[in-house]
């Protein structure tokens, strides 16, 4: 554990809390993509199967359970809880995530896992872990698309996405730190490439976020 990873994890937890708070305060789901959180739930459920097989630390286990429960709670709130449920506009949140996210990531994960480990080293848990790394890298896409459609970004929504992006950026710093200060460090290029891709997806958002904070004006995205 280092300061960057801890800050990254905290930023992630904070973003989830901000979103839950935002849903409860505003009592609507305008500008929020439930599909992004469904993708994150798939990511967490496929990655954290090692909760049953390996114990790393109490911190690690608690955070994993927290991510799963809080993400499920976001989905439940938007899809099933009134009055929020009736404000959720399905037609705006129409990213075809099975075709454009889950299926391609499953294929890519199968190919890279088989190349990496061969038939003999094949492990279903490993395969799902690789799949979750790929899927996480694009899980924010439905949210960014919804944002683009609404164009005007509500304050807390902007903050929730900002902390989500900050979390990914801090993880890159964490890898740089680990590579420099840990003995027997091993590079993992799939993790790096997906992590960088995921962070790059936020760059455009960050640009307009900081611009609006600086001007103190309303946060709107260009057409």
């Amino acid at each position: 554990m280092n300061i960057f990873r801890l800050a990254g994890d905290m930023s992630h937890v904070f973003s989830i809390l901000v979103l839950l708070l935002r849903l409860r305060v505003a009592k609507n789901a305008q500008g929020i993509s439930v599909r992004t959180h469904e993708l994150f739930l798939i990511v967490f459920l496929t990655r954290y199967l090692d909760l049953f097989t390996t114990f790393y630390s109490l911190y690690n286990s608690i955070m994993k359970i927290l991510y799963i429960v809080s993400t499920a709670s976001i989905i439940y709130t938007i899809k099933f809880q009134e009055p929020i449920k009736s404000t959720y506009d399905k037609s705006q949140d129409s990213f075809l995530y099975w075709q454009f996210a889950v299926a391609p990531c499953a294929v890519l994960a199968s190919v890279t896992h088989l190349i990496g480990s061969g038939i003999s080293g094949f492990s279903f848990i490993e395969l799902l872990w690789t799949f979750s790394i790929y899927l996480e890298s694009i899980a924010i896409l439905p949210q960014l698309i919804v944002l683009q459609r609404y164009r005007e970004v509500e304050n807390l929504t902007g903050n929730y996405i900002f902390f989500m992006g900050a979390y990914r950026f801090l993880y890159i710093l964490n890898w740089i730190y680990r590579a420099n200060f840990e003995a027997h460090y091993q590079h993992h290029w799939v993790v790096y490439i997906c992590g960088v891709l995921q962070t790059l997806l936020y760059v455009d958002f960050f640009y307009y976020y900081f611009k609006s904070k600086k001007s103190g004006g309303r946060f709107t995205l260009p057409t």
Binding site: T54, Y56, K64, E126, N174, Q186
Partner: peptide
């Protein structure tokens, strides 16, 4: 077992 390396991350 080397594969465990990155799995202590979330």
């Amino acid at each position: 077992i080397d594969d465990l390396y990155f799995k202590d991350e979330l």
